[in-house]
Design a protein around this nucleic acid. Sequence first.
DNA 1: GCAAGTAGCGAAATCGTTTTCGGATTGTCC
DNA 2: GGACAATCCGAAAACGATTTCGCTACTTGC
Lengths: 331, 331
Amino acid sequence: MPTSLTDIARQLELSPSTVSKALNGYRDVSSDTRELVLRAALELGYQPSSAARDLPRGRTDRIGLFLNTALEYVVDYLSGIIPGAVRCSQACGKRLLIYTLTDNDPDQLLQVCRAGEIDGVILFSTHYDSHTIETLLEDNFPFVVMGRHIPDERVSCVVPDYYDGTRQIMDHLLGQGHRRIAFMTRPELTTANEARLQGYLDALAAADLASDGQLIVETRLEADSGVAPTRQLLVLASPPTAIVAAHDLVAVDVINTLQAAGLRVPQDVAVTGFDGLRAGFRTLPHISTVQQPLERIGERVVELVNRQLNDPAALPVQETLPVQLVLRGSA
Amino acid sequence: MPTSLTDIARQLELSPSTVSKALNGYRDVSSDTRELVLRAALELGYQPSSAARDLPRGRTDRIGLFLNTALEYVVDYLSGIIPGAVRCSQACGKRLLIYTLTDNDPDQLLQVCRAGEIDGVILFSTHYDSHTIETLLEDNFPFVVMGRHIPDERVSCVVPDYYDGTRQIMDHLLGQGHRRIAFMTRPELTTANEARLQGYLDALAAADLASDGQLIVETRLEADSGVAPTRQLLVLASPPTAIVAAHDLVAVDVINTLQAAGLRVPQDVAVTGFDGLRAGFRTLPHISTVQQPLERIGERVVELVNRQLNDPAALPVQETLPVQLVLRGSA
DNA sequence: GCAAGTAGCGAAATCGTTTTCGGATTGTCC
DNA sequence: GGACAATCCGAAAACGATTTCGCTACTTGC
């Protein structure tokens, strides 16, 4: 129903081919007719049908990002990386699309890819299974994993330096004189978790401190996930003077729980987060955290997908981006 | 490069038409060949090309939602409505796509619509201008506005009952004995703002209280937007005993600022939010707020778009959904 | 056994672009 | 003036599906 290229052709008594060439900057069109065509296109508000354009080209110039909105953490993290991802994709002449996934249907991702709705896809850490990755590899479909290291050299991924970030936190806390430092892990066994835990343990060892199993507690990914573990720590015979939370959303819970118990942050207990999400500004004091280069991650992830698009033979890249401790008051 | 319908046809020595009909449940295919085709399609991981399918149909079965990620509020709100919107769109056999918009280019929305990438679009309150709406109306392109009432009977929209919600808050606070109640407005002049303010003023009038201009302060939409206005209220000669924040994110700032100043919530100052976002659980006490039926809004918005798709003559609907005060501790 | 109906399949048009190729008109050069 | 190049345009194939129509071969009914 919207105006098509043929409409313009009819109105100007030209052939569709000429109109197409005029619009696409071919040289074999006189400047007169080109101007006529451009004016008519503007007047009629012409926009080429994306389906009709994509079909012969075999490309869509679209990149997909799949999102499981069930998890608050995902949404917060995503809103951090999107500006960079959008900027980069626009610079590459692509559009970034967010697909909303229903929780338990990983096939949808494959369907969208195979249907050719997008040229490449960004996988966000928490939702993919190895079958998805294996299939994408078989299909030779461009994709990049974000925020999670995949131990497979055929897979490109972009991750923040979890180990170094945790070391930075620990060095700071140890430098402040803290000796009983609690550590909150996430339940899932990912390389990110392992790297963080290793950073914690190594820092303790480097300071000649023994690790205390009671100080290592588990959190969940849902809301309020920091409350229970904090209470668990507070009833210890010898409670911690500092708490290294799994990420900023957990740290928010931790701080609120501590303050509700009459403890001052950071005087009585220091608290650190991770990621540098906007949630870190939702407490007073604001959260001292390890700032991930979120926008940069968004950029790189799109860049890497784009590279695969332009050069299918490009070798996969496993990239670790530097992070930086930001002190904002809570530690 | 992925397997096409023709590939299956060649392999089985059938015509493309027969394969298509077998896959789409036509009756003029023998059950034998149908089974053959289905098996081959499964084996090859066949997925019909969306471009090739959409082109002759003139439909995409996709609905777009445009998102400006610059604003934290938008992301939080969106994560609330998405589950309902996704569920409903799947029930209608559509897919919900989120388009990331760069801040200052409203034309992108029109381009996507005119290119036929989507069948209908959901406009989220904070980013659209009247030109966009006017053009969509001219194009006869299905759309629904979410979270903002548009004073134009040709436009469908779904909004929470801002007036009633504010009345509920005020009735509760007045019932608690509060007499000096501060009100935080948003800077933009929208019907939502007006409705909230009217609810505030009407409630005061109904209680025979005069309104005090000093108690009505303005917030911004950005992060930390509640801090400054709260401080402004605290230095008043006669400070408020209750603060009605513009929405939950503002209320988070308000509570933190009050607690940092040594005031207890709600004993010294009661605080209320609006919307019922997840941020309301990030303070202690949790925020007493007016819960919008977020999932329901997501559902209705998609339903209304879908109705326009199925029946282009359907009359526009301007819907106000009921809200409910939820007491969680801060008031 | 013959007309009529039915089941199963393929041919071909269609959607709106892009892109290659060839044709026509003009101009240029010797 | 004739060969050749340059300029501008249109014809037509292609992308991969859907869908209508027609054809064949078989069944059914009398």
